[in-house]
């Protein structure tokens, strides 16, 4: 599998560590309460189509990357740096 690192370009997926849903970008405010943190830490959409997810280029440039990938065909549609996705989300 190949992942297009926004900085290093296309690389073999063995250089990356998969973390999971990109919902981890949106950590609740400290005072958001137990329910919000339960949802953030434990609940997952787990779609069968497009999944927005977090990868870490750990034996490359050590960037955290937000990818959009179809989890049935494994096709990647878009990758961007997590710091940019976060800024975009603001």
């Amino acid at each position: 599998m190949r992942i297009n690192c926004p900085i290093c370009g296309e690389r073999d997926s063995r250089e990356f560590h998969y973390r999971g849903s990109a919902k981890l970008l949106d950590r609740p405010a400290p005072d958001a309460g137990a329910e919000a943190f339960y949802d953030y830490v434990y609940i997952r959409e787990n779609p069968t189509g497009l999944n927005r997810e977090l990868w870490f280029h750990d034996s490359g440039c050590r960037s955290w990357i937000v990818a959009e990938r179809n989890v049935t065909t494994h096709e990647f549609f878009k990758t961007e740096l997590a710091v940019d996705a976060k800024r975009g989300a603001k």
């Binding site: 290093c8 690389r11 250089e15 490359g60």
Partner: peptide, 11 residues
């Protein structure tokens, strides 16, 4: 230059 894997090691 490239940051990549060299036989399971960071390089």
């Amino acid at each position: 230059t490239a940051r990549t894997e060299l036989a399971h090691m960071m390089s």
